[in-house]
Design a protein around this nucleic acid. Structure first.
Length: 705
DNA sequence: ATAGGGTTAG
């Protein structure tokens, strides 16, 4: 039979506890007798409110306690009697749970000296410093902690060199609850009482500041150390490396890191992670790798956080191709990926359009039972739109809707509409638009741009106009991308219907309207055209200049206006919208066509061929090799990439270029073959035959970048 | 388990 004491803590009424001999508690009492307040605190600690109430009741000589006593057999014990002394648990584990329960009560009690001392009455006067430290160390309530500290100070009356330990432990309650001001106040109190802070005081304050996102405060406190006779040690140094790294103070972070190395203070993986993150934020992946390497050389094992930080840096610096190696190393070092690892990998792969890798991360997350976020779903779907995988997109979309953890948002619908639009699925795109609206989302400019593209491709010009009206009705201002789409639609539309589209373009952008009118009406007068076109290009944001140039050139080409196409290309070169299209080295002359639309690329090719002929005519020597780089990319809205369009175009020209077997996206020709081909073409046959070459291609793809 | 320490994504 076990006995227990129900605390009856009013100092006013009695210094006695009563012992219940009933086995009323739900917890089991196994090997040891549970003789005292411990049991009451165990049962109280289950419900802190109840605990508080009971303490308060007890303090007012609880009538409830009396009624309880009716149902149980209780023995009153005077806590000061010799019997009470042995009621405190003797075994370490019993004492541990006893003190832990006391601390729980303290954390949830009213912050007052009286409540605190009521709870701690069970310890009576023979409190050991160890017990005091144990309890203070576990305190999480910064309101009560100072009262607990005060209580122990009164009972223990420690010397100031012992008192600092109690203060340091109390400071932790402020750190846990992110109350930095409170911690500073306690520090002041410490000084007022003549207690000298030590390194532990400072490292606690410094880390509190960091956790409260106050790295400047951390620096401030670090700088105060010497004035209190404290010199930095391994712990404060490592905290400060992180604090300086947090503020992107590279010099100070490195200088303290250097000091730690010089003193042979070991820094751990998380400190290294903060250094790696510092360089990651600055976009300096090379330095990230250097720190990572040093870390390993110093024998510090990278953790999942280290690898996640490294992957995060890769994501920021867009070095996607390195992600796979980091991940491989992580796995081979036995570090298990977590949610952040997968989320970061997925963002990297989806952003870089590594289709297979992104999809396999997605599958792995699903397999591990990890919930995808809306953002991750959207990035995946955005990639599907970019690389044109319809089935996957639909499957992922369905999975998202049935996941129960997140729902499609405006971006989700936008991606799906783009997926369908890019693949000519008109009714599916329309269906998705309806679903979007039914889900409470208004169509955005992105959605409407996709639909213009979709209807344009399907040659439903009236629907293109309908979308344009919808855009205006929604109060959306058409942007340059939207205009580019309208231009692109024009390249696919018979001349008879041009009027419908030019009306839209004029309403969308007056300057563009007049440039287009020049082209469509075939007006002469170069000066005016160039002037209007350059005014237009100067009036728009830098990042949309190239897409617009590309679209304008495509339109010129589709209108059989190669000279206009060259004008726009020239203008683009002059305004540095296109850069380094041609390059010449001793061994190779090259034409770089990446990021050009088909029309712009073909125009640039003819200009280049023309330049080569001129070089020959002026007896200039050609290099051993000539090459055209088309890249391997395929655009969203076209079925083919530039490379395949070029392959057939070069064949039509009888140009002896051949795809380089070892360099994807390159077409090469030797000096000799080039010479004889150029000579056979003759000087008369130059850019003028461009039209017939290009107009054969029914669709001139739009290059958006 | 009894005064020091946290870090990672968008």
């Amino acid at each position: 039979m076990a006995s227990c004491i129900c605390a009856s803590h009013s100092s006013l009424f009695h210094d006695r506890h009563y012992v219940s001999t009933s086995i009323s508690s739900s917890f089991s009492l196994r090997n040891f007798k549970f003789p005292n307040a411990a049991s009451s605190h165990k049962s109280l600690s289950l419900h802190s409110k109840a605990s508080q109430a009971l303490h308060q009741d007890a303090a007012s000589h609880d009538p409830d306690a009396n009624s309880l006593s009716l149902s149980k057999t209780r023995i009153w014990v005077n806590p000061n009697s010799p019997r009470a002394k042995h009621l405190q648990p003797k075994s370490p584990s019993a004492r541990y749970s006893y003190l832990a329960r006391l601390t729980e009560s303290l954390n949830s009690c009213t912050p007052s000296a009286q409540h605190v001392s009521t709870i701690l009455k069970g310890l009576r006067d023979n409190v050991s410093e160890r017990d005091a430290v144990f309890i203070l160390d576990k305190m999480t309530n910064p309101e009560t902690a100072p009262f607990v500290l005060g209580h122990f100070r009164d009972k223990i009356k420690p010397s100031t060199d012992k008192e600092v330990i109690l203060y340091n432990a109390t400071l932790k309650a402020f750190r846990k609850s992110r109350d930095f001001e409170g911690a500073e106040k306690l520090f002041d109190e410490m000084l007022q009482r003549g207690v000298k802070p030590d390194n532990i005081t400072f490292s606690t304050l410094i880390n509190s500041a960091r956790m409260c996102a106050l790295p400047d405060k951390a620096v401030e406190w670090f700088k105060k150390m010497p004035s209190f006779g404290c010199e930095p040690d391994a712990m404060t140094c490592s905290a400060m490396v992180s604090a300086y790294a947090q503020t992107n103070n590279v010099d100070m972070a490195l200088s303290l890191y250097g000091r730690a190395k010089a003193e042979k203070w070991s820094l751990d993986a998380s400190t290294f992670s903060t250094l790696i993150k510092m360089y990651g934020v600055l976009g300096n992946y090379v330095e990230c790798l250097r720190i990572f390497g040093e870390m390993k050389v110093l024998g510090v094992k990278p953790t999942v956080v280290t690898y996640n930080t490294l992957l995060g840096s890769l994501f920021r610096s867009k070095k996607s191709w390195q992600a796979k190696n980091v991940y491989k190393e992580m796995i081979s070092n036995g570090v298990s990926p977590d949610f952040i690892t997968y989320a970061t990998l997925l963002r990297i792969y989806a952003g870089a359009q590594y289709r297979e890798d992104a999809l396999s991360v997605y599958k792995e997350m699903k397999g591990n039972g990890m919930d995808m976020t809306v953002d991750l779903y959207n990035r995946l779907l955005d990639m599907c739109a970019d690389v044109g995988c319809i089935e996957e997109a639909v499957e992922i979309f369905e999975d998202m809707k049935s996941s129960g953890t997140c729902q499609p948002d405006s971006l989700t619908f936008s991606s799906l509409i783009t997926v369908y639009s890019c693949n000519g699925k008109v009714s599916e795109a329309e269906g998705m638009l309806n679903e979007m609206i039914q889900s409470g989302f208004q169509p955005t400019i992105y959605v409407l741009t996709s639909l213009v593209q979709c209807y344009g491709r399907a040659k439903q010009t009236d629907d293109v106009v309908k979308i344009f009206k919808q855009l205006l009705d929604l109060g959306i201002v058409p942007d340059v991308y939207f205009c580019c789409c309208l231009l692109n639609v024009m390249t696919q539309t018979p001349k008879e219907e041009f009027g419908k589209l030019t009306d839209c373009i004029e309403k969308a952008n007056t300057r563009l309207g007049s440039v287009v009118r020049y082209l469509v009406e075939g007006q002469e007068g170069d000066g005016d055209f160039r002037k209007e076109a350059s005014e237009l290009l100067n009036s728009i944001d830098f990042k949309v200049k190239k897409p617009l140039c590309n679209c304008l050139i495509d339109l010129c080409v589709s209108l059989n206006a190669p000279n206009r196409a060259r004008d726009v290309l020239d203008l683009g070169l002059m305004l540095e919208i296109y850069k380094n299209i041609q390059s010449r080295s001793e061994t190779q002359w090259s034409l770089h066509l990446k990021k050009l639309s088909v029309g712009a690329a073909i125009t640039a090719l003819h200009v280049w061929i023309n330049d080569l002929s001129k070089a020959l005519e002026s007896w200039e020597d050609l290099p051993p090799l000539l090459g055209v780089n088309t890249g391997q990319g395929k655009h969203k809205y076209s079925d083919k990439g530039l490379a395949s369009v070029f392959e057939s175009h070069l064949r039509e020209l009888n140009a002896p270029f051949h795809q380089a077997p070892d360099k994807a996206g390159w077409f090469l020709v030797t000096k000799e073959a080039a010479k004889s081909w150029l000579e056979s073409r003759g000087s008369a046959e130059t850019i003028d035959d461009l039209n017939s070459q290009v107009s054969g291609a029914s669709t001139v793809a739009l290059q958006y970048q």
